[in-house]
Simulated scan of single mutants.
Amino acid sequence: MKPMHALTSAAALCAIILGTNAAAFAQPVLTIEPLASFDRPWAVATLPQGGFLVTEKPGRLVHVTRTGNKQPISGVPGVTASGQVGLHDIALAPDFESSGLIYLTWVDGSAGGALHLGRGRIDLARAELSDFGVLWQATPSGGNGHPGAMMTFSDDGQLFLTSGDRQLGDPAQDLTDSRGKILRLASDGQAAPGNPFAEAPEVWTLGHRNPYGIAFDGQGRLWSHEMGPRGGDELNLIEPGRNYGWPLVSEGRQYSGFAIPDHDTRPDLAAPVIKWSPVIAPAGMIYYDGAVFPEWQGSFLIGGLRSQALVRVELDGTSAREAERWDMGNRIRDVVADEQGEVYLLEDGDGGRLLRLVRQD
């Protein structure tokens, strides 16, 4: 397939318009190469042998080859695909090459609209998922909004799972409620040992609205971003036992327009490292350390839904700043990189495409 239009970042445009030293913005010239299209895709994982696994919100899992050929996978759990919920994230087990195990998150209406985490063994040659079982389920269940549902593994094999507040607010501050939290689980879905709250053994942090991206940086620090209510999208450095404030504080406002106290009013609550107003509606996020784009090493790459952008965030220890933003012309649902450092984006919506970023310099 032929690459499409060239992409120019906002920082590069500023350099052209303002005459800024070009060396300060020595970013690659990019085009995009479409590989395949889907029915409301939600998340993508790269396979070590090449190719991809893509989830579709209505409840399908698709194997995609490097050349874009698609094969549906059988054995996926039934989901409720309505509004903001359905089949969500996919993650390969840390020992995937030997075990073939994958993890999925989804919402099942038969259980009151609860977020679920499950695991099964995939056989790509037979295009099937076997021995699939539920490992964890949100309690209590229910709510209206997106459930978070994003996963990442630490180097020691613990699974971090985001659980949204489902637009209910108060559960985020209730340690007896798994909504509005970031959870740390063992590989079998049980509470991991050493979590900070004795009364809530699964919980790592609380006070989250809709944590919708989660990743470790190169120094082993955990970061997550979440969507604000009306303004106030956040990038947070995640530290065990911290309370990130929702719904007590926010950098945004209620949808009704009423104010919410900002983080400065509650120094006891963790403030975001970056706040976005206007919002970018952040989606998938990866830490990039690949060879294809050496200029981006040590950065987060974040998909933007409302902003229809790819956003690059530079890290400096525990500080961060937005460094680049590329207008993609479509909502970007997820971002991944393969073992060679190639970067792929997943568009949102009916007909959303899997795209490869291609260097042109």
Rank of each mutant, 00 (worst) to 15 (best):
A45T: 13
Q71H: 14
S74A: 14
H63L: 08
P72Y: 05
S82A: 14
F132V: 00
G100D: 05
A93G: 11
P77G: 06
I122H: 12
A91F: 08
L92V: 01
A125V: 13
L87E: 02
R126A: 15
A81P: 15
G112T: 06
T55P: 06
V54F: 08
V64K: 12
G68M: 07
A111E: 11
G59N: 12
L117Q: 06
G86R: 08
V85L: 10
P58M: 04
P48S: 06
D95M: 00
W42F: 02
T46R: 06
G50V: 10
G118M: 03
Q49G: 12
A93Q: 02
D95C: 00
L87Y: 08
S98Q: 15
G75D: 09
G86I: 06
V76W: 09
G83A: 05
G112W: 08
S99E: 06
A45I: 06
T67E: 14
T80N: 12
V79T: 05
K57R: 15
Y103Q: 04
L115G: 14
G59S: 11
L115W: 09
L101Q: 15
G78A: 14
A45N: 10
S98L: 07
P72R: 10
L124A: 11
R119D: 06
N69V: 04
G113A: 09
Q49W: 00
D95A: 10
P41N: 00
V134N: 14
P77Q: 08
V44G: 03
V44P: 04
R121N: 07
L101E: 15
A45P: 11
T80F: 02
L117G: 06
V62K: 07
L129T: 12
V62S: 10
I90S: 04
T65Y: 04
T55C: 07
K57S: 11
L115P: 14
R66Q: 14
W42P: 02
D131T: 05
A91C: 10
G109P: 08
E97Y: 00
N69K: 12
F96R: 05
F132Y: 15
L61D: 08
Q71M: 07
H88T: 09
G133Y: 00
H63D: 11
I73T: 05
V64H: 13
H88V: 02
L53F: 03
F52H: 07
G75M: 08
D108E: 14
F96L: 00
P48D: 03
G59D: 11
P77A: 03
I90F: 01
V54K: 09
V85T: 15
A125R: 13
L117D: 06
V85Y: 03
A43H: 04
A43F: 03
S110H: 12
P94E: 01
E56L: 08
E97Q: 13
V64C: 10
Y103T: 05
L47S: 07
E97T: 12
P48I: 05
V107H: 02
D131N: 15
A43I: 00
R119I: 00
P48C: 02
S98W: 10
S82L: 11
E97F: 00
W42T: 01
G59H: 11
G78D: 13
L61N: 07
E128Q: 14
G118V: 00
S74Y: 00
A127S: 15
V107M: 03
P94A: 01
S130D: 11
V79D: 05
V79E: 07
R119E: 09
G133D: 09
L129C: 09
D108F: 10
G83S: 09
